[in-house]
Computed example of a mutant assay.
Amino acid sequence: MSRIQCPRCLRPQSHCLCPLIPSLDSRTRVLLLQHSSEVNHALNTARLAALGLNNAELIVGEVFEDLPTLLKQPGYQARLLFPGDDAQPMQAYAATDEPLLLVVPDGTWRKARKMLHLNPLLAALPRVTLAEGGVSRYRLRKAPGPGALSTVEAIVQALEILEAPTSFAPLLKPFEALIEGQIAAMGEEVFQRNHGPK
């Protein structure tokens, strides 16, 4: 028997995060392209980001037929938030007149790379990247390397660079509650055994 879900945050009704989700304005438009396998993931941080930002859109799939239309947002310059040899640091766009359309693939690194491969228009976008060394609060997943952040953390860091001194930290409140809830559900002993310091 399945638990009743909140139709907005997709969490079980008893663990609804909606009261913690802010409603934040941003000059930057955020386009989240979520791999379809992530939709029902318990830790769906892309959805939290899309719900908390008024100027954000979440599209689910693997091949995005509407990409040409989605990327043609008048008044915005599209940039892909994804590492690469030619990626520019986010700081390079902090003082530009034209706001960014920040395109953020959401999925495991492998799935995100596959999305780029299947969507040549996406792969061809100029890339931006965050400063190295960001520390994730995502204590339930092993990071593939230093500076690997969850989708919502990466978006918060990007927006705080692009739109300083505005704070986007309220976006992290539902994320932290989600992590705490998962840890409480598994129990401290199981959490320490699987995710604690080795």
Rank of each mutant, 00 (worst) to 15 (best):
I4C: 14
Q13Y: 05
C16Q: 05
P19A: 06
P22W: 00
L24A: 10
S26C: 09
T28Y: 13
R29G: 08
L32M: 12
L33V: 03
S37I: 11
H41P: 07
G52E: 06
N55S: 11
L58H: 10
D66L: 14
D66V: 04
L71A: 14
K72C: 12
Q73A: 15
R79W: 06
F82D: 00
P83V: 09
D86F: 12
Q88I: 13
P89H: 07
M90C: 12
Y93C: 08
A94Q: 12
T96W: 08
L102A: 03
L102Y: 04
V104I: 04
K111C: 03
K114G: 12
P120R: 06
L121H: 09
L122G: 10
A123P: 04
A124N: 11
A124Y: 04
L125A: 03
L125C: 05
P126I: 01
V128P: 00
T129W: 11
G134S: 05
S136T: 11
S136L: 01
L140G: 02
R141G: 08
A143Q: 09
A143M: 05
G145F: 12
P146T: 13
P146E: 09
G147I: 07
A154Q: 04
I155T: 09
V156Q: 05
A158T: 12
I161Q: 12
A164C: 13
A164T: 15
A164M: 13
T166R: 15
F168D: 04
P170N: 06
E176Q: 14
E176D: 13
L178R: 00
E180F: 10
E180D: 15
A184C: 00
E188F: 00
E189D: 15
F191T: 01
F191D: 01
F191M: 05
F191N: 01
G196C: 05
P197Q: 13
P197V: 10
P197N: 15
K198Y: 10
